[in-house]
Design a binder for these strands. Structure first.
Length: 590
RNA sequence: CCGCCCGUAGCUCAACCGGAUAGAGCACCGGCCUUCUAAGCCGGGGGUUAGGGGUUCGAGUCCCUUCGGGCGGACCA
């Protein structure tokens, strides 16, 4: 069994506490001081006890240190500052971590999920399949994928899910956009609405439909326009008034119902074609980004299987629904929301919220102990009503966590780039990946907290891609691989190396850094903060680069050489374990 | 007006659920390649943590308040 210095010190302190203040309960908390001169671990136990014992913290610290049982692993325990006890470990207590890492290998740092909280679902991206993913989705994807990997590494059984919004009006708009572009190919010109999807991919889909089915879906422009309320006069600058915007929306709705009427059964084909194409494109994009999903959950399936109706009926049965102005309202104010919400409109259609209630009820029916939704920050107002619905259905809403990812603003040459899917002038995730590279892209996103708004400077990201922090970490990995190659020995045998020659400050600091890894994993999994892993890896790489520059690894002395190689391989292992979580590759040469 | 996120070096960001002298990167200045990858290392300057008040041994962190920024406040998704 491997030796844990932190647990050992906690035991020593506990023993000392028993003789100094056996009656006083106190939790023993050890932390790693920021400053090296403060030792390897510090305890504030004496300060905690000061009030209960009505004594000076430093005096209490002195008594604790005096009562500390002797240990071969402890070099010294000093009292500092207001009453901290600083512990310095014996070198052997620090270097043994190298053996632990080499033995555990891929499993070093892995945790165990608490009993009864093992099955976790992480739902992320979930973008409408109405066009290419853009840089905002890229952030959600990077965050969600790393969080899922992090939780899996921390011992949870993780299901990665994408919620496909294939049932709503947005999909109808995409389908009708495709159809209008298709009609243009047959010289039937319906003025293309400015609020329909403008992107070039819509024309591509139109071409595909034409290639497969020729003129099968052609109807005259006159017939179509006759069914829809008129559009307002076109404004090239897009500055429509509020009234005109409403007109545009009803005009578009009119075109959609015209399409449904004229095409009849065949509308489903156009609709399905657009959905299938966009979903496939999205999936391919994400896979290439290294983001994988275990489950693609269809919103439409909730309607097809009656789950939406069932969820609303269940709320109704429990007396949380009332009818007003012909619509069904969920009394979410009873559960902490600021106003009640419509679940079924006066025209009989369910709202998006209704399917979301059914969706979340379904998530918990699937037996997850914890459900994590990753949403864009603009959805924050949505949280209380979803929680409210869960409470109304007697589902423990404490099992739902919502992580909000703040917006990404794109800057190019110092100017903000406007993004809008419908206008078609957004920067796609695909373009960004090809520009900056997958590794740099993912690492860049993860180098800041998800709840912090992010300015993505394209010019900078591209021009500085050669000294992007990700290369700094990968470079450390490549250097170690290179040294091992020149040594030519068998890395597997290094776990048995005598580590006694690892004595220098840098070497011991590097060992301490390695020992931190499991704690970093546990803390960042607890806080849903994969960025902490990225920061840790940068520090580990910095420690390594410093050591590498200061001391030669392949020295004459065989024992010293093997000890150093063992340390280097341990560093490489932790870099691998960490980068794997972040979805970043580990090149052997750069 | 109400709600959520936030305000830390010139810029982009950290700071282990209250700890010690607030740290990195970029940018700037000065050094280090006939020895394992210079995509690297070593050193230097740079701060009233937006302002004010409170809680306590101790506050960037918790509470109140002012100012400033972003995002929400649909029978849209």
């Amino acid at each position: 069994m491997s030796f844990d210095p932190k647990a050992h010190l906690a035991e020593l302190l506990h023993a000392a506490l028993q003789s100094v203040a056996p009656e006083t309960p106190a939790d023993i908390h050890l932390e790693r001081p920021k400053q090296a001169s403060h030792g390897d671990f510090a305890s504030n136990l004496a300060m905690q006890l000061a009030r209960a014992l009505k004594d000076n913290p430093r005096k209490i610290a002195e008594r604790l240190v005096r009562e500390l049982p002797a240990s071969p692993w402890l070099e010294k325990a000093e009292i500092a500052g207001a009453g901290f006890i600083n512990f310095t470990l014996a070198p052997a207590a620090k270097t043994q971590i190298v053996r632990n890492v080499l033995t555990a290998a891929d499993g070093f740092g892995r945790g165990t999920a608490p009993e009864g909280c093992r099955k976790v679902q992480v739902e992320f991206v979930s973008a409408n399949p109405t066009g290419p993913l853009h840089v905002g989705h890229g952030r959600g994807a990077a965050y969600g994928a790393s969080l899922a990997s992090l939780l899996a590494f921390a011992g949870y059984q993780v299901c990665r899910e994408y919620y496909v919004n294939d049932a709503g009006r947005q999909m109808d708009i995409l389908a009708v956009s495709t159809w209008l572009r298709y009609l243009e190919l047959f010289e039937e010109y319906v003025p293309f609405p400015p609020n329909a999807y403008q992107g070039g991919y819509v024309r591509e889909m139109a071409e595909q439909v034409k290639a497969t089915h020729q003129d099968r879906y052609v109807h005259s422009a006159e017939a179509i326009l006759a069914c829809a309320p008129p559009a307002p006069p076109r404004r090239e600058d897009g500055a429509y008034t509020k009234d005109e915007k409403e007109q545009l929306e009803s005009h578009l709705d009119g075109l959609i119902s015209a399409a449904k009427d004229l095409l009849g059964e065949e509308w489903a084909y156009v609709h399905q074609h657009a959905l299938t194409e966009q979903l496939a494109d999205c999936r391919e994009d994400l896979e290439a980004y290294g983001v994988h999903f275990d489950c693609w959950f269809s919103e439409r399936s909730l309607y097809d299987t009656g789950m939406v109706a069932k969820a609303v009926a269940e709320l109704e049965r429990r007396g949380h629904i009332y009818v007003q102005d012909g619509a069904k309202w969920f009394r979410s104010t009873d559960f902490g929301d600021e106003k009640d919400r419509v679940v079924q409109r006066d025209n009989g259609l369910y709202t998006y919220f209704a399917s979301d209630i059914a969706y979340h009820a379904n998530k918990f029916e699937r037996g997850f102990d914890k459900v994590i939704d990753i949403w864009g920050a603009d959805h924050h107002g949505y949280i209380p009503r979803v929680r409210g619905a869960l409470k109304a259905l007697d589902i423990d809403d404490g099992k739902l966590d919502v992580a909000l990812v703040q917006f990404v603003s794109l800057f190019r040459d110092g100017a903000k780039v406007s993004m809008s899917t419908r206008s078609g002038e957004f920067v796609t995730l695909r373009e960004l990946r090809e520009d900056v590279g997958n590794d740099a892209c993912r690492f860049f996103y993860l180098l800041r907290k998800s709840d912090q708004a992010l300015d993505f400077d394209l010019t900078l990201a591209k021009s500085e891609s050669s000294d992007n922090p990700v290369y700094y970490v990968q470079y450390a990995h490549a250097r170690i691989c290179s040294v091992l190659g020149q040594w030519g020995g068998e890395a597997g045998g290094l776990a048995a190396a005598d580590l006694g020659s690892l004595q220098s400050e840098r070497e011991l600091a590097l060992c301490a850094r390695l020992a931190e890894f499991p704690e970093v994993i546990a803390a960042s999994a607890r806080d849903y903060a994969p960025h902490a892993v990225a920061f840790y890896l940068r520090e580990l790489a910095a420690d390594f680069h410093g050591w590498y520059n200061a001391e030669r690894l392949l020295v004459e002395d065989e024992q010293a050489k093997l000890a150093r190689l063992a340390l280097a391989v341990a560093v490489r292992q932790v870099l691998r374990n960490g980068l794997r979580i972040l979805g970043v590759s580990t090149p052997e040469a750069m």
